[in-house]
Every structure is written in C-alpha cells, then in structure tokens.
C-alpha cells in the first residue's frame, strides 16, 4: 500500500487506515515524539493523538505543499510540542488566568509575523547542509544535543559550538527579539 491509498483510507475514515498508518509510520512518529516528551506514558498518549489528528485532518493534506511523511511529521511535532507546553503551563499555574490578555495576535502583529517568517525562510535557505540539519533538529524536532551529535557524527562539544554560532547568526539576521 502506498501513501495515496493510505490517504484514501484515512479520508474515507476506514479503520484500516489507522492501522496502516501506525504500521508504516509508527516508528517515525515515535522517533519524532521521543525527544520532545520524556514521559513514556505521555508519549503513547501523544502517538494516539497524532493518529487521531491524522485521521481527522487527512482531508486537509495538500500534496502540492509537500510529501505525506513531511505532513505527518509536522502533525507529530506540533502535537507533541503542544502537549509539552500544556503540561508546562499546568505545572506552572495549575489553571488558566482569567485576567490574562487575549493571546490572539492583532493585525499589526500578523503582518510582522509574516515578514519574520519570510526572513526566517531566507535565512534557512542560506544555511549550509549540516547547519540546516542542525537547525531543524534543534528548533523543529527539539532533539537533545547528544542525539544530534551521534546521528550527525559530531561530538557534543562540536554541536554546541555550531549551535552557538548558528544562534548568533540567526539573532543578527532576524533581529533577536520577537517584537522587534
């Protein structure tokens, strides 16, 4: 079964789709989730969330924007990160502050975000092969230094040094602060 057939099953909400999704991409999804969530139980729950989201949102997948594996990895990464943040917020405050301002961005901030995203895309494209890999592993997949070092054939110290230089460069080119 290829990705197209798998998508058809998911879109039709056929139960075999979820099984096939786990069979084909389960190991990849676990690989993506593992560095973000440390608790094994939470990882399993997150994996279930990812499958559920893929099941629900398979119709939103647009092949023109990238491969199915890339879309699925984005779903897994964002789901795991949301769980991480939700868990962190719970631990910090226990409950939501009713007096907190509305987190939804205003029109001006939306324009600024667009501009920042464009600049970030340009910076990513200008990175060397290894730096781009490090960038995605660090900031997108949230992998720990030891994992990055082992998989890229570098020492942890070398990875830390490269990341430091990378951060300096990004700060210089992106302005450094969210609202600048």
């Amino acid at each position: 079964m290829d990705d197209r057939e798998l998508l058809e099953l998911l879109t039709r909400r056929d139960e075999r789709g979820a099984d096939e999704l786990l069979r084909r991409y389960g190991l990849m999804l676990r690989y993506i989730i593992a560095p973000i969530l440390s608790d094994p139980r939470e990882r399993e729950e997150c994996l279930s969330d990812v499958v559920l989201r893929a099941w629900d949102r398979a119709g939103q997948y647009d092949p023109a924007r990238g491969g199915f594996a890339a879309w699925l990895s984005a779903v897994a990464r964002n789901t795991a990160r949301n769980r991480l943040r939700a868990g962190g917020a719970d631990r910090e405050t226990g409950e939501l502050d009713p007096t907190a301002p509305d987190p939804a961005p205003g029109p001006e901030e939306l324009v600024l975000r667009e501009e920042r995203a464009r600049r970030l895309r340009e910076v990513i494209q200008s990175l060397s092969g290894t730096d781009r890999q490090l960038f995605y592993r660090k900031y997108y997949y949230l992998q720990p230094t030891a994992q990055m070092a082992a998989e890229l054939g570098l020492t942890q110290r070398a990875v830390e040094g490269r990341l430091r230089r990378l951060r300096l460069r990004l700060r210089k080119e992106l302005g450094g602060e969210r609202d600048v």
């Binding site: 990238g66 990464r77 990160r81 995203a117 970030l120 995605y136 997108y140």
Partner: peptide
C-alpha cells in the same frame, strides 16, 4: 520553535 510550527521542513 514557535515560528517553525508554521514553517515545517521540506521533504
């Protein structure tokens, strides 16, 4: 990390 949520890596 936040901004990359909207900028997933290419294939």
């Amino acid at each position: 990390e936040d901004e990359l949520s909207a900028l997933p890596p290419p294939d």
